[in-house]
Design a protein around this nucleic acid. Structure first.
Lengths: 230, 230
DNA sequence: GTTCTGTGTTATGATACCCTAAACCTGCCG
DNA sequence: CGGCAGGTTTAGGGTATCATAACACAGAAC
């Protein structure tokens, strides 16, 4: 028995496995067992083990020594998990007052036990959002995501107004730091200075404040150009 | 690994086990293996198995052939689960538009994966409620519940106005039926007729409608006397 | 093409949970 | 107080999910 009351019948381990494959699988290449072992924090044999079991379930395509790839069925499950995860994250922020850096772990746990009924209830309540609080696109029921073309802060032209649209960072501490510095979703800014050789970027946030941001963080903040700061 | 991010570290099975012991344990008596096997839908040996494991964790006091009893620690866990369960149920109704008969299963799954942070967030949002949508009391953080003295519909004096305060029924179908018939939480009514020998009870719900209710259902609906119908 | 080297797999084992079948208590009955 | 019936436990298995240690393969280096 497992926690889910809906279709799939997958266990938490299986769902996490499929998610990990999805995340590591770029275009059409296979994912190595070691990469999965790292991502899932389990041993390599455990990955082989799971891969072989999932072949029977038809969610994964596995070739000895060549790695793992999702089947269409597996990809559907992964995208469903992604939808769950991102909707739950959105919900935690919107309705329960969670901070951006707190939501990942909570969603990670909830996504496995929540029913479809629940997920669709919060989706409706949130107004069927297309993006989660990190700015990551939320797959719709058919697994389709609305991709955008955004620029990292490090690639922004000087003195061109832009709006923060996405945070690509997993570290909760870094995430928290961005928020505390006023680098929040939707904030408008322009780059006033940029050091060469992957040095820091200095941005002006409205009239309010100026922040100098390390390269790593700056490249993890994506923005879109806007006409004027407001 | 299990789904919880908080303290306890209990698995879903363990938590369900402790809840079951709590539910079956009246005052100070022990709960029999078979009773637990029935309640949990597992075999008797599986219960013995679990009981022996939980002794090591200190949540349960188990004597061979004499049954199981919660320790103080075990009772704390059980009450914490009860709090979680009932707060989640309240939340599902209040904020997500669930119907009364839909909430039990969803809460049953969620209570195991949600964090304390989550539970307390919804408690705050709901205004620290003392009762869940069934009218069951919600333990506070110290495990204390506000008990009330309510009457079953079957014990009500004729023509005495009363208000529905609690539904003691597990069957979702019966629960759903009460709601459809207007026997909802807080509704005011009076008994206009009662058949002898555990026969049906006829109640008048305001001016709106009159319902004749079978004994079993009527005895599962608890009310409090009020001064006048309104 | 043969040989390394590191990546991946098999072998073996552990744990939590469960089951069925068989052996075992316990309390009641006479 | 012996014995039976029914509730309990022990024995013996099974699956999913992990781990460690030992072995096997693949691709690069020569």
């Amino acid at each position: 028995m497992n926690g889910r009351r809906d279709a799939s019948g997958s266990s938490q381990s299986v769902e996490d496995f499929l998610k990990a494959v999805y995340n590591l699988q770029g275009e059409r290449d296979r994912v190595s067992t070691n990469a999965l072992a790292d991502a899932l924090n389990i041993s390599a044999p455990a990955v082989t083990d799971m891969a072989q079991r999932l072949v029977d379930e038809g969610t994964v395509d596995y070739l000895k020594y060549r790695g793992v790839r999702l089947t269409d069925k597996g990809e559907r499950v992964a995208l469903q998990m992604l939808r769950r995860h991102r909707l739950i994250e959105t919900y935690l922020v919107q309705d329960l007052g969670y901070q951006l850096h707190e939501i990942h772990d909570e969603a990670e746990a909830l996504e496995h036990s929540v029913s479809d009924r629940f997920v669709e209830a919060i989706a409706r309540k949130l107004g069927e959002p297309s993006y989660d609080p990190h700015g990551d696109p939320i797959p719709n029921l058919d697994g389709i995501m609305q991709e955008r073309s955004l620029q990292p802060l490090t690639a922004l032209k000087l003195h061109s107004p832009a709006r923060i649209r996405r945070f690509i960072m997993d570290d909760p501490a870094m995430l928290q730091n961005t928020q505390e510095r006023g680098l929040v979703m939707g904030a408008t800014l322009e780059v006033v200075e940029r050091d060469p050789f992957d040095g820091p970027v200095t941005v002006c946030l409205g009239a309010k404040s100026t922040q100098t941001i390390g390269y790593k963080m700056a490249s993890s903040i994506l923005v879109e150009y806007i006409d004027r700061m407001c």
